[in-house]
Design a protein around this nucleic acid. Structure first.
Lengths: 338, 338
DNA sequence: TTGTACGCGTTATCAC
DNA sequence: GTGATAACGCGTACAA
C-alpha cells in the first residue's frame, strides 16, 4: 500500500526544502531549471497530487457545492442534479448532494453539516415541510454568514437570494388554454395544497386561463393533494366522482396514474378525455398513450443555478446585494394524450 | 454579515487561550466549571461550530463518501443514491455524488479529484466505457493508496474490493423460467453487448433457463444493444422482424418501449405477448399495462454498500484483506404484462 | 487549572 | 536560487 505522497516526502527524499518543492511544482521562475526538472520528474513518478483538504483550509475555498433537494427519485430533481453537475465539474467543482426527504429537520441538519466549511455555496429546493411551516431561519443564518445560496423551483419570498424557477403559472396557463381551445369545458385539476409554492402557482395559472376565456370553474373539478406523496386512493376517488373531459396534473406521476384511472373507468384517451402533466420525463414519454406535458427543463435549471452560484462564489466584490430571479419558460410538449 | 466564528475569536474575546476554549467546549475535566460555563455560553450565543475542513485535515478523516455512478436519471441509480444517503447521513457522513456519464475519462477525472483527500472512501458502479475498455488502473491506484472502495452493480473481477451485486443471472433465469412455464416458446431477449457485466449475466440466465427446460434457443430472438442508450429504431427493427410470444428486457426503459412497439404491431399484451423488464421503478409500475419486472432493490443495495464501506473506513485493523461480495436476491414482481 | 507548542499539508512572504 | 517562517483552524501532549 503506497500511501499518498506529500510535499514533505518529496523534500526529504530530494534533500531540498518544502517551499522549494512547492515552487518547483508551480513552475516558479525563482527555481533553477535543474532543480525544477528533478522535482517535477520525481513528483510525476510518484504521482503527486496536492491534498485538497489542506488547500481548502489555506484558501478558505473548498471547490465544493452543496445541493439539497427533497428527493432524488423524482425525475425532475435528478435532471437538475445532472445539470448542476455538468456545469460545476467543468469548472473543477464537486457536487455534494444531500436529500431532505421532504423533512424540515433533515434539511436543517444537512445545511448545518455542510455550512461548517464543507462547501462554498448552496443550491437548494425547499422541502415541503419547510414550506408548510414557513420557517426559514436555518437558511437565513447561512446567508447571513455570507455563504452564497441559490434557491430553485420551490422557493420563498422570505429569503433574499438568487433564485431559478420556471414560470409555473404560465405553464399551467398554457396547458389549460390549450385544453379550453380544444373545446374542453370540464378540465379537472389535480394539484397540491397551496403551501407548496409550485402547486399554488399552477393552480393560479389554471384559474387565470379560465377567467381569460370567460369560462366558469367548477370547484369540484379541483383537487388539492395534501402532500407530494402518491396516494392512489385519493386520486381514484377524485376522478371517479366528477365528470371530466380533460385532466391537468402538477407532476408526471400524478398524471400517469390519473391517466390509468381514467382508462380504467372506461373513458378513452385522448378521444374522450385529454391528459396533461408537468415534468417531461421518461414516464411521460413512454406512458401509453404517451403524455402531453409541460417541460420544466430541469437540466437547464440546474445549469443556470450552478452558473449563478459559482459567479457569486468567485465574485470578490461582495458589494452589490441585488439578487436575481431567473425565470425559465416552460414548454408544452404535445404527445398522444391530447 | 456575521462571519463564521473560530476558537481563536472566542479565546481573544474571553481572554483565555485557544486550547482552553477547545477543552472547555469538549467539557474536559481539566477546565474549571466557571470557565467552562462562560465559554460554553459564549459559544452557544455565537453559534460556534468547528470547521469541518480543519478537523478533516487534523484527523485525516473527512466524513465524506464519494459515489460515482454512470448516470442519475436511471431510476435504479437514483434509488441506490437514496439508500447510500440514508445510511451514511445517519452516521454523520456526507455523500459526494459524481456522474461519469458512461465516460471513461470523466470517471477517471472524478476519481482523481475526490481521491486527493476529499473523501474517506468510494462507492461506485463502472461506466460502460470503462467496462468496454477493461482498463481499471485508475481504480487500482485508489485501492493501492488504501482508500476503501465498494463496487456495486457493474463490477469487475479485475479489482479486488468489496462488492454488492444482485444475482443478475438468477433474475433473468427466474423471469425466463416463468415464461417458459407459461408455455411461451419464442421468448425474445433484449439485452446489451457482453462487455457490460450485467448484460452478459442476464443473457446467461436466459440461456440457462432454456437449457434446464430442454428448449432450444433461436439466436434470432436475442438482440444485444450496442450501448445502454435507447435507440428506438434498433428496437423497432428487432421486434418487427421476429415472431415472439414473450419479451424479456434488461432494463425498464427498454421494456416499456418494447411494450409500446409490440402493441403498435398489433399484438395484445399480455394475451399474445408477455413482457418482463429489469428494474422495478416508476416506469414499470405506471406503464400501461403495468410491467411485470425483476426488482433490483437499489435502495437496499445502496444501504448495503454504504454499510460495507463505512465499516471498512472505521475499521482500524487494516490487517485482513479478505473482500466480500454481497449478492442481493432479485425479486419477480408480477403485474399486468404477464 | 490553564497555557504553550506542535502538527496536519499547503502556500505566500520574506530573508539569505 | 533556495530556505525558513507564518498562517489557515483545530486538537492534544506536555509544561507551568
Amino acid at each position: 500500500m503506497k500511501k499518498k505522497i506529500t510535499l514533505k516526502h518529496i523534500a526529504k527524499e530530494l534533500d531540498v526544502s518544502i517551499s522549494t518543492v512547492s515552487k518547483a511544482l508551480k513552475n516558479s521562475e525563482e527555481i533553477s531549471r535543474d532543480t525544477k526538472e528533478k522535482i517535477q520528474a520525481f513528483a510525476k513518478l510518484y504521482n503527486y497530487r496536492p491534498n485538497n483538504i489542506a488547500v481548502s483550509l489555506k484558501n478558505k475555498r473548498t471547490k465544493n457545492i452543496g445541493v439539497i433537494i427533497p428527493d432524488i427519485v423524482h425525475h425532475f430533481f435528478a435532471t437538475v442534479i445532472s445539470g448542476v453537475e455538468k456545469y460545476a465539474n467543468s469548472l473543477g467543482y464537486n457536487v455534494i448532494v444531500c436529500l431532505s426527504d421532504e423533512s424540515f429537520d433533515k434539511e436543517v441538519i444537512n445545511m448545518e453539516m455542510l455550512a461548517n466549511g464543507s462547501i462554498d455555496g448552496f443550491i437548494m429546493s425547499l422541502s415541503s415541510e419547510t414550506q408548510q411551516k414557513g420557517d426559514y431561519n436555518h437558511i437565513k443564518e447561512v446567508t447571513e454568514q455570507g455563504i452564497p445560496l441559490v434557491l430553485f423551483d420551490r422557493v420563498t419570498n422570505s429569503v433574499q437570494c438568487d433564485k431559478v424557477i420556471i414560470d409555473d403559472q404560465l405553464g399551467a396557463y398554457k396547458a389549460t388554454k390549450k385544453l379550453l381551445d380544444m373545446g374542453k369545458r370540464n378540465i379537472a385539476l389535480l394539484t397540491t395544497e397551496d403551501y407548496l409554492s409550485v402547486g399554488s402557482e399552477r393552480t393560479r395559472g389554471y384559474l387565470r386561463a379560465h377567467a381569460d376565456s370567460n369560462i366558469a370553474v367548477n370547484d369540484k373539478n379541483i383537487f388539492k393533494m395534501p402532500t407530494m406523496e402518491m396516494e392512489e386512493a385519493l386520486i381514484r376517488d377524485f376522478i371517479a366522482n366528477i365528470t371530466l373531459d380533460a385532466l391537468l396534473c402538477v407532476n408526471e406521476i400524478f398524471a400517469v396514474f390519473g391517466l390509468k384511472v381514467v382508462k380504467e373507468l372506461g373513458m378513452k384517451v385522448p378521444e374522450e378525455v385529454s391528459v396533461i402533466g408537468f415534468t417531461d420525463g421518461l414516464l411521460s414519454k413512454y406512458s401509453n398513450p404517451s403524455l402531453t406535458s409541460i417541460a420544466q427543463h430541469g437540466e437547464s435549471m440546474g445549469e443556470t443555478a450552478a452558473k449563478m452560484l459559482i459567479k457569486r462564489i468567485e465574485d470578490e466584490s461582495e458589494e452589490e446585494e441585488y439578487f436575481q430571479t431567473k425565470i425559465i419558460e416552460p414548454t408544452l410538449i404535445e404527445r398522444e394524450s391530447t
